[in-house]
């Protein structure tokens, strides 16, 4: 007993830890995970608030002239949006009328919850965002997350005041999509974010008769999948390639670059209780 036993001690320690971890019930692991996340969440929220404050103060430094110009631009935008809103209301009524006539189930309605991004975790292994809203704000797992440019991803985990969003560039993110103006479903899946480049995805199961005709096509969400409302932009498909089996084509999807620098997103929370977004 001496030197050798001293040297063996780390191995014993490792063995013990492994054994303990092996036999710990899953709910305890889950409990530890949630607590460790909740423990650090205030730090990330504080950092995020600090950034917001920083932004606030940098905006405060703008001159009055700049503010007047911005206000004027905003007023114009508001009137344009008001017009769009009125049009949308008329279209919604028309849709409702058609749904009644054709005896179709109503389109799912969503409640929008806007949330700040507190942290981005994007690398070759995983692609996710942490947002500053959680269970307390009605966020649920599987809910779609969008921004002005289209789809951001899907809520993966929800904590008390924060939630994790799996980005559309994540290889684990797969949804039914369709080309703009074509309702046939294709499969979209993320493949990651290459360095110094746009995040990317791929599409499978594109019908063989579909062509991009030398102009890139926009890929949008399909409501057939049951999670996302129809028509939200996913990305752009530049080229399609026929698969050797001749059944389908596949292609690469270029996602918007600003997906990587988002500071605010909106979570769509289904209002209809029948709409099941969970797996």
């Amino acid at each position: 007993m001496g030197k050798s036993s001293v040297h063996a001690r780390p191995l014993v320690l490792l063995g013990c830890l492994l054994l303990i971890w092996w036999f710990v019930p899953p709910f305890i692991k889950s409990f530890v995970q949630v607590n460790f996340f909740e423990l650090q969440a205030p730090a990330w929220s504080a950092a995020s608030h600090l950034k917001d404050l920083q932004l606030y103060w940098s905006l405060r430094n703008h001159s009055q002239q700049e503010l007047i110009e911005a206000g004027r631009d905003l007023a114009r935008l508001n009137s344009a949006y008001e017009l769009s809103r009125q049009k949308e209301a008329a279209l919604n009524k028309e849709i409702e009328h058609l749904e009644k006539m054709l005896n179709l189930p109503p389109l799912p309605n969503y409640n929008y919850e806007v949330a700040r991004v507190t942290r981005r975790d994007i690398n070759q292994w995983w692609q996710q965002l942490v947002i500053r809203k959680g269970k307390d704000h009605g966020i649920i797992e599987g809910a779609p997350v969008v921004y002005a440019g289209g789809v951001v991803g899907r809520i993966q985990k929800v904590f008390k005041n924060t939630a994790i969003v799996e980005l559309i560039s994540s290889p684990n993110f797969r949804i039914a999509a369709s080309f703009e103006g074509d309702r046939r479903p294709v499969i979209y899946q993320g493949v990651g974010t290459p360095a110094f480049s746009n995040p990317r995805g791929i599409i499978h199961n594109v019908p063989p008769d579909y062509t991009t005709e030398s102009t890139p096509k926009r890929l949008v969400t399909s409501r057939l999948g049951g999670t996302f409302p129809e028509g939200l932009v996913l990305g752009q498909v530049d080229e399609l390639k026929a698969r050797s089996d001749g059944l389908f084509q596949e292609g690469k999807v270029s996602l918007p670059q600003n997906l990587m620098s988002l500071s605010e997103v909106a979570i769509l929370i289904p209002l209809d209780e029948d709409v099941d977004t969970t797996i």
Partner: peptide, 28 residues
């Protein structure tokens, strides 16, 4: 490691086990 692990999509404990393993090797 648990702090690192908590928000990750990998099974909770992956980083911890990996770190402890490397830690043991360094201890040796």
């Amino acid at each position: 490691s648990w702090v690192v692990d908590a928000p990750l999509p990998t099974p909770f404990g992956t980083t911890a086990l990996l770190s402890i393993f490397i830690y043991t090797l360094i201890l040796l």
